[in-house]
Every structure is written in structure tokens, then in C-alpha cells.
């Protein structure tokens, strides 16, 4: 008897596997998207709408721009989300992958501080000051007109898009190493949380993450002062701008192309605006 039980179990398992195998053949309609947490809200939102009107299933996962570009290049994901350009290093590494970039919106990165610092009067930082803070040469808020408090310098993981763009503006080098750093965070949400929880932090985040606890300061450089307002961004004067893009390996086809077009189209662009970014096609003089 016992023998039959085992044989039966084995058969059941086999059947289970063949069933799983069969259904795999039917579902070619799956798009896997991974990457930047800055682009994530837009794409998630668009994906939900897209899925409502089609039988395609779209998987959206976070990971950061580096992961997005890497996954797309390796064919591990159908679309990579990136909030920065493909770096020269990555271009060299993935030169056989024929990566194509599809811009879906524009975003600005602000220099963020904890609300306590903002309230105490630090409303403006010069580019040189930010650089010194990140290099660990300025370590107290009183040196830049704030209270006598040590600065909690918050950095992002080195492959994150927001970091690349911010560091390129501040230092002219996207992969600048910053010995002043005190905490390293990953996703935008994680960094926002850390800045809000601290009362003396500085960090970098996209405009979409500004709120009462996490405030953006005016940035000053040799070209003037730039307030972190949507108006400044739309006028194209704001200095830390970047494209939000979807990245594919080779030219997209079929459902993947349909989805990219959907994001670029009116409904997708609406979700770009709703998430606090600037739609493509708005006239700005890009940096």
C-alpha cells in the first residue's frame, strides 16, 4: 500500500509540473520593469491603468537606476527605469546590449534639509557650501548660518540616479566620493524617512519628495540663485535637472513598445504630472 502512495504522490507532482509548464507557454504577455525609485511611482501608476485595458501583466520593482540599466542590459528585465544617463562605464560594459533610452519626463533634484534646520533659517546653500559639507569640511550648521548642531550628512547608494545627478552638479563628477557622509540610504522613501526623523540632516531628493518634514533649500552658484519651485523648473533655469527614462535592450517591439508609448502618451504623462514631475515636450532649456 505504502508503495502505491509514493507512486501516486510522484505522479501528482509530475502532473503539477506539466500544468505549470503548460500555462507558462500561454503567458508571453508579461513585462518586467525594474529600476529607479524616482521613476517607479509614474510607471506603477501607468502600469495599473495599462493593465486595466489589456491582458498584459506588468511587474514593477524598485532597485535603483544602476539596477535598472544593468537588468535591461542583461535581459533580466524587459524595461529598466533610470533617473540618470547611462554612464560611460556602463556604456563600455554593456556595449553589446544596444541599449535604447526613451525619455518619459523631466525631474529636478533638490538639496533637502530637515524641517528644524529650515525653520531655524537655513534657506539657502551655495554650491561650494554643499560641496564642503559632503567632503566633511563643514560639519556644523552654524558655519552656514544655522543652529549650533552637527550636520547629519545623508548620502545615497553609489549607483542611485539621484546621487549621480546631484554629485555631478555639486562636484562635476557623478561618482564623487564623499568622506563627510554619515548615513547611506537606498530608495527615495528611505532617505526621506531618515531626513524627517533627524532634526539636522541634509540630503538629496527629487522635488516629488518635498513635504513639511523634508524641505528644499535655495541653491546658489556663479549663475545666481535658484529656488526649488516648479516655476523655476519649468522655466528651465533650475540647475539640477535630469531626464526620467525607460531603457530597453534594442528597439522595443509589441507590448513593450505599446507600454512605452502609453507612458509617453496623454494618460501616462498625466501620471507624470500627478507625481510632481514635468512631462516631456514642455519647453525647457535642458542643462
Amino acid at each position: 500500500m505504502a508503495r502505491f502512495k509514493w507512486v501516486g504522490l510522484a505522479l501528482l507532482l509530475l502532473m503539477g509540473w506539466s500544468f505549470v509548464g503548460d500555462s507558462a507557454a500561454e503567458t508571453g504577455l508579461r513585462i518586467q520593469i525594474v529600476g529607479s525609485t524616482t521613476v517607479l511611482p509614474v510607471v506603477s501608476h501607468a502600469a495599473q491603468q495599462f493593465m486595466a485595458s489589456s491582458n498584459t501583466r506588468i511587474l514593477v520593482n524598485a532597485g535603483g537606476s544602476g539596477v535598472g540599466i544593468f537588468s535591461a542590459a542583461q535581459g533580466r528585465a524587459d524595461i529598466g527605469m533610470a533617473s540618470r544617463e547611462i554612464s560611460s562605464n556602463e556604456k563600455k560594459r554593456f556595449k553589446n546590449s544596444d541599449l535604447k533610452t526613451h525619455s518619459v519626463g523631466l525631474d529636478a533634484v533638490a538639496c533637502m534639509v530637515s524641517s528644524e534646520i529650515y525653520q531655524s533659517g537655513v534657506r539657502l546653500l551655495t554650491r561650494a557650501q554643499i560641496a564642503k559639507i559632503y567632503m566633511g569640511k563643514i560639519t556644523n550648521w552654524k558655519e552656514v548660518g544655522g543652529p549650533d548642531k552637527k550636520i547629519v550628512v545623508i548620502d545615497k547608494e553609489h549607483h542611485r540616479g539621484t546621487r549621480h545627478v546631484f554629485m555631478r552638479y555639486v562636484f562635476g563628477n557623478a561618482t564623487q566620493r564623499t568622506p563627510g557622509t554619515i548615513l547611506v540610504t537606498g530608495s527615495n522613501n528611505e532617505e526621506q524617512t531618515k531626513i524627517a526623523q533627524s532634526d539636522s540632516a541634509i540630503g538629496m531628493l527629487s522635488f516629488a519628495w518635498i513635504n513639511e518634514d523634508v524641505r528644499a533649500v535655495i541653491i546658489q552658484d556663479q549663475n545666481g540663485k535658484f529656488a526649488p519651485t516648479l516655476k523655476a523648473v519649468q522655466s528651465g533655469r533650475y540647475p539640477i535637472m535630469r531626464e526620467l527614462s525607460l531603457i530597453t535592450r534594442g528597439e522595443p517591439k509589441g507590448k513593450i513598445k505599446a507600454f512605452i508609448d502609453f507612458v509617453k502618451g496623454p494618460e501616462g504623462q498625466k501620471s507624470v504630472v500627478e507625481n510632481g514631475y514635468i512631462p516631456v515636450g514642455v519647453e525647457t532649456s535642458k542643462p
Partner: peptide, 8 residues
């Protein structure tokens, strides 16, 4: 409790 700038 240790009067630090951050808890992590």
C-alpha cells in the same frame, strides 16, 4: 537616550 544626531 544617548543624545545622538541619528539612531542608526
Amino acid at each position: 537616550s544617548f543624545n545622538l544626531l541619528y539612531g542608526n
